[in-house]
Design a protein around this nucleic acid. Structure first.
Lengths: 211, 211
DNA sequence: TTACAAACCAAGCGCTTGCTTGGTAGGATC
DNA sequence: GATCCTACCAAGCAAGCGCTTGGTTTGTAA
């Protein structure tokens, strides 16, 4: 049995770094990297279930059976996409928080980071993380949730400070959920090359929580 | 060719009423109604693709082939769930708007209505509408979008008034999208029988847009 | 040159899927 | 009491699915 005296099995920065080192999503040099990028793309536009291993294989120019040289099964591809998406963006968030001096700046930084993660280069993978969650087997969900915790803790501690200082009204947990919905949902309507800049959108989103 | 001089083919209240009369989702008397309720349930918890017609059939106690006496194919079940969910909740919204006197009250009413639609009795069907959208064939998406327009127009006109009066800051369209994300997403974390009442959540959500 | 592993191919197996078919039970209508 | 219609069953087909298998190519390093 595991020690359950802690609320959750937190992972520290070192662990995060080691997982980061194994990330392949953004590496177009390796076959596995290309497979993951294309998987993120197809999983986003068609959904996980409607994407067959034959679709994925022919999209990267190999035979369907060859996929299973790189991944044990289809679920593991989904897991890898999600894991890499989280790890990559958690690193960006940590850097963003470090770089900001005021609390307001920090909140805006977090919002901008999250908007970029879901509408920028890793957008397809993050979309898969958000909208294909149910397709991940439960045991693998737990592992991904653990990775996500680091990320969510950054948000909660920032919001707690903001509430203490009277910048934000309400329960930090509820506010985080409401805001998370707004930001995740942006991928369904926001176009990064449209007339609304991501910076303006981030400021509008910051207005939601500030009082 | 249709007349395309109008931005969208708006449907009026009479049409809405006639579609409403054919709604079966909430009718446990008819076999079709029970089928739709169970479909909404299964589509929500497993997703459309992972719900087989055999699952659905055995859940209502008939043979899998018998489903196709009521629906031409599986897609039409999804469409019917979505259509009934929209029509039912649009009616509630119209009544809510009529009943409110002040603008603030109207906004709170719209928020409460949307929260109830997605977390209350029609919650499973509304969840299917929001999260299984991609699984609906494109031609059917257009029909459902048309139904949704009435509903979205209610929101936009209320927000436009609010911006004019200085109650709300920003572009009504963007604000509506951000808020729609918050409210839709609530189904993933909010429990209607938990410690946070739906009324309190609605007030917290209203705080997001008010300034 | 040989040795070896990683990357991939060609073929197809076993299973599940949406859906079809031909038929039956039971109630309403004339 | 014959006719008809709605709601269903029992059986199964064709297609598509994830994944396996045994073998071949390709790159690397001794």
């Amino acid at each position: 049995m595991e020690d359950m005296s802690h609320k959750s099995a937190r992972l520290d920065l070192d662990e995060l770094e080691s997982v980061f080192a194994a990330m392949e999503l953004t590496n177009p040099e390796s076959a596995k990297g290309r497979l993951l990028t294309m998987a993120a793309h197809l999983f986003k536009v068609r959904g996980f279930d409607r994407t067959t291993v034959r679709d994925l294989a022919s999209a990267v120019g190999i035979q369907s059976g060859s996929i299973f040289h790189h991944f044990k099964n289809k679920d593991e591809i989904l897991e890898a996409v999600m894991r890499d998406a989280i790890v990559y963006n958690t690193r960006l968030m940590i850097e963003g928080v470090k770089a900001s001096t005021t609390l307001k700046e920090q909140l805006l930084g977090l919002i901008r980071c999250e908007l970029e993660s879901i509408n920028g280069v890793t957008g397809e993978a993050m979309n898969v993380l958000v909208f294909e969650w149910r397709n991940l087997p439960e045991e693998k969900q737990r592992g991904i949730l653990e990775l996500r915790q680091y990320y969510e803790d950054l948000w909660l501690s920032a919001l707690e400070s903001a509430v203490e200082q009277g910048m934000v009204q309400g329960d930090p947990f509820v506010i985080r959920r409401l805001l998370a919905g707004s930001l995740s949902w942006s991928s369904t309507w926001y176009r990064i090359d449209g007339s609304l800049s991501l910076e303006h959108l981030a400021e509008q989103a910051l207005l939601l929580i500030l009082h």
